[in-house]
Amino acid sequence: MTIDWNAKLQHLLQTLAFCLAVASIQFAFMPERSYAPGVVYSILVGTIIWVVVDIGRHAMPSAAETGWPKGFSGVLLVAAGIVAGYFFGNKLGDAICQAFGLFGPRGMAHTDADLRSGMLITLLAGIAGSYWFYSRNRSGYLERQVGEVQRHAKEARLKLLETQLEPHMLFNTLANLRALIGVDAVRAQEMLDHMIAYLRATLDASRAATHPLQAEFDRLRDYLELMAIRMGPRLAYTLELPAELAGLPVPALLLQPLVENSIKHGLEPKVQGGRITVRAHRDGPALVLEVRDTGVGDARASGDGPGFGLTQVRERLAALYGAQARMDFALTPEGAHTRIALPVS
């Protein structure tokens, strides 16, 4: 088993702090004793217990959820650490305190009461410290498990949103194609060709959670060409993608619902139609994507609302980026404006 020595160093520092706290509590109850010997004994006893238990446990079969030996072997390990800490810690403490004269004029004199209290303190402190590290390990394991479950739930939610979006767009396009077949078969054939190209690109993109921004703009171009066949001169569009941003990864089909929303709620209700502009640019550390239309704007019927598209995009951003991404939607007399800011490395 690989040992995380940075974590072990943290555990050692925590153990030393705990030992100092124990020595201070002892001195508070027995101020007539010198403080220095109590610190030496406490640190030596606690450090030996820590070495035996926290290092020694890696030499034994351990439970995945705690990293500690399973069943009764874990209890024996803690008991062995406490016994070793008490005997070897006291022996070393005696030698060090005598060598440096820390006992003072009183000299080294361990009464039966001293031995009993030392054993009791070592037992209680050893159990408390071991349980503390055991609980921390178990809590860390549970946190990792919760994080893993949340990650899988987020992935499942994104897949659900994507499966909702694809049929939504497909059904709308098929309905438009059906309407066009009866009035202009040639344009319907052209629309069908664009649709096949679009669906082929969509199938390729569906195999990955993200794709380059250039691919997103290419798919928008295919979709807008489909809509231009049906709407004719009532639909104009502009796609602005700087070359340096073309390779940045973005969620697949992110902008499609916003463009569809602009057509359905903004341009189609307007007799003369209008223009859709899709633009990408950098704003400091963020990638900014904007979709503007010159549709009916705030004259939209109150019952239209933001619709499926905006809701779907907002939920995908929340699932993928959390608070790191932001989406703003505004209606003005001149049309609608959606702005998305994504974190980029």
Rank of each mutant, 00 (worst) to 15 (best):
A7V: 13
Q10I: 14
L13Q: 10
A17H: 10
A23R: 06
A23S: 07
A23V: 06
S24W: 11
F27V: 08
P31I: 10
A36R: 15
G38P: 04
S42Q: 10
V45G: 00
G46I: 09
I49M: 05
I49N: 07
V53N: 14
H58L: 11
H58W: 15
H58E: 13
M60T: 02
P61V: 03
A64N: 01
A64L: 09
G67K: 00
K70T: 02
F72R: 14
V78E: 10
G81T: 08
I82F: 13
V83F: 07
Y86W: 15
N90W: 13
A95W: 15
C97Q: 09
G104T: 06
G104Y: 05
P105W: 14
R106I: 06
G107W: 15
A109R: 15
H110W: 15
S117T: 12
S117N: 11
S117R: 14
G118A: 11
M119H: 05
M119Q: 04
A125I: 10
Y131I: 15
N137K: 05
N137P: 01
R138P: 00
G140Q: 09
Y141N: 08
E143Q: 11
E148Y: 05
E155Q: 05
A156H: 11
R157I: 09
R157H: 14
K159Q: 07
L160T: 12
T163D: 09
Q164Y: 09
P167H: 07
M169S: 06
M169Q: 15
N172S: 12
R178D: 06
A179I: 04
G182E: 11
V186G: 02
Q189H: 10
M191Y: 06
M195K: 09
M195V: 12
M195L: 14
I196P: 06
A197D: 12
Y198T: 07
L203F: 09
D204N: 13
A205M: 09
A205W: 09
R207C: 07
A209V: 10
A209L: 06
Q214G: 07
Q214Y: 10
E216G: 03
D218I: 02
D218Q: 10
D218Y: 00
R221F: 01
Y223N: 02
E225N: 11
R230V: 01
M231G: 00
L235M: 03
Y237G: 00
T238A: 14
E240Q: 13
L241V: 04
L245T: 10
L245R: 10
P251V: 05
Q256P: 08
Q256C: 14
L258Q: 01
E260K: 01
N261A: 01
K264C: 01
E268Q: 12
E268D: 02
K270T: 00
Q272H: 12
A280L: 04
H281F: 15
D283V: 04
A286N: 12
A286C: 11
V291M: 04
R292V: 02
R292D: 14
G295T: 04
V296R: 01
D298E: 03
S302Q: 15
D304P: 00
G305F: 07
P306M: 11
G307H: 05
F308I: 03
L310W: 12
T311M: 09
R314N: 08
R316M: 12
R316Q: 13
A318Y: 14
A319G: 00
L320E: 04
A323C: 04
D328W: 14
L331V: 01
P333D: 06
E334V: 06
A341G: 01
L342N: 00
V344Y: 06
V344I: 12
